[in-house]
Simulated assay, not measured.
Amino acid sequence: MSEDFEIKNKVAESGLVNFDLSALSPKGKRIEIDLKDFLFMEMILKEKDFREKVAEIDTEIYRDTFVYVYCSVEAIIPIWAYFLITSKLTGIAKKIVYGNKKDLEIILMHEAISNYNFDALEAKRVLVKGCSEEDIPENAYIELVEKLKPIVKSLMFGEACSNVPIFKN
């Protein structure tokens, strides 16, 4: 082999910055609270019984977790019921939301993107990683483009060897 032959990493030399959106996803356990378990016959909310069951919640189970609260059965749940559950877990859980796990993930990623400092990507060519072991909500990609479009030189999606150009400024 010739001494003049040099292996070059064209991707590294391109100035392309890889951005992995999954790195923003908050780490921690996700726990559900299904209000059907607090209902009489899984159908009716009786205030006194509901309050007793909320008072009996072992809050340590929820310490430093992300909690989503919903009701899996057809029942009328007054808004104050969500107040009681949230009040019990506030200051213990990292985050409490109404909805399913997907709703929780959308809200967590929204907050992560909103709070992230993107200054290091200013005027850069950015490649948003296409494959991730984590399930990233589609809305996170939409919010990411909104944040990046005004500041980056160009945006691509995928992998360095196979990407889709999104825009150039």
Score class of each variant (00 low, 15 high):
residue 2 S to D: 11
residue 2 S to R: 11
residue 4 D to I: 00
residue 7 I to P: 00
residue 8 K to W: 02
residue 8 K to M: 09
residue 8 K to G: 01
residue 10 K to N: 12
residue 11 V to A: 12
residue 11 V to P: 00
residue 12 A to D: 01
residue 13 E to D: 15
residue 13 E to F: 07
residue 14 S to L: 03
residue 14 S to V: 05
residue 16 L to Y: 02
residue 16 L to N: 03
residue 17 V to P: 00
residue 17 V to F: 03
residue 18 N to Q: 13
residue 19 F to Q: 07
residue 20 D to E: 14
residue 21 L to F: 10
residue 21 L to V: 11
residue 22 S to Q: 12
residue 22 S to P: 00
residue 22 S to T: 10
residue 23 A to W: 00
residue 24 L to R: 06
residue 26 P to F: 09
residue 26 P to A: 07
residue 28 G to N: 07
residue 28 G to P: 08
residue 29 K to S: 13
residue 29 K to D: 14
residue 30 R to W: 06
residue 31 I to T: 11
residue 31 I to M: 15
residue 33 I to E: 03
residue 34 D to P: 00
residue 35 L to A: 06
residue 38 F to H: 04
residue 38 F to D: 02
residue 38 F to A: 01
residue 41 M to K: 14
residue 41 M to V: 03
residue 42 E to S: 14
residue 42 E to V: 00
residue 43 M to L: 03
residue 44 I to A: 01
residue 45 L to N: 02
residue 46 K to A: 00
residue 46 K to P: 00
residue 47 E to Q: 15
residue 49 D to A: 09
residue 50 F to I: 04
residue 50 F to G: 04
residue 52 E to D: 13
residue 53 K to L: 13
residue 54 V to M: 06
residue 55 A to K: 13
residue 58 D to C: 08
residue 64 D to Q: 11
residue 64 D to F: 04
residue 66 F to G: 08
residue 66 F to A: 07
residue 67 V to M: 08
residue 70 Y to F: 13
residue 72 S to G: 15
residue 72 S to F: 08
residue 73 V to I: 01
residue 73 V to A: 03
residue 73 V to W: 02
residue 75 A to E: 03
residue 76 I to L: 14
residue 77 I to D: 05
residue 78 P to T: 11
residue 78 P to W: 07
residue 78 P to K: 13
residue 79 I to G: 05
residue 81 A to D: 12
residue 83 F to K: 14
residue 84 L to F: 11
residue 84 L to E: 15
residue 84 L to M: 14
residue 85 I to N: 09
residue 86 T to Q: 13
residue 88 K to W: 07
residue 89 L to M: 10
residue 89 L to H: 11
residue 91 G to H: 08
residue 93 A to L: 05
residue 93 A to T: 06
residue 94 K to M: 04
residue 94 K to V: 00
residue 96 I to W: 12
residue 99 G to P: 12
residue 101 K to T: 00
residue 102 K to F: 05
residue 104 L to F: 14
residue 105 E to L: 14
residue 106 I to D: 15
residue 107 I to E: 15
residue 107 I to Q: 11
residue 108 L to D: 04
residue 108 L to C: 08
residue 108 L to A: 09
residue 108 L to W: 10
residue 109 M to W: 10
residue 110 H to L: 04
residue 110 H to R: 15
residue 111 E to M: 02
residue 112 A to H: 11
residue 112 A to L: 10
residue 112 A to S: 10
residue 113 I to N: 05
residue 115 N to Q: 13
residue 115 N to W: 00
residue 119 D to H: 02
residue 119 D to R: 04
residue 120 A to Y: 10
residue 122 E to M: 06
residue 122 E to H: 12
residue 124 K to I: 01
residue 127 L to K: 02
residue 128 V to C: 06
residue 130 G to K: 05
residue 132 S to H: 02
residue 132 S to C: 04
residue 133 E to A: 05
residue 136 I to P: 08
residue 140 A to S: 15
residue 140 A to L: 07
residue 140 A to I: 06
residue 140 A to C: 06
residue 146 E to D: 08
residue 147 K to L: 03
residue 148 L to E: 00
residue 150 P to R: 09
residue 151 I to Q: 12
residue 151 I to F: 06
residue 152 V to C: 12
residue 152 V to G: 01
residue 154 S to H: 05
residue 156 M to Q: 06
residue 157 F to E: 01
residue 157 F to L: 15
residue 158 G to L: 04
residue 159 E to R: 14
residue 159 E to A: 13
residue 162 S to N: 11
residue 162 S to E: 04
residue 163 N to G: 02
residue 163 N to K: 10
residue 166 I to C: 03
residue 167 F to E: 09
residue 167 F to G: 01
residue 168 K to D: 09
residue 168 K to W: 02
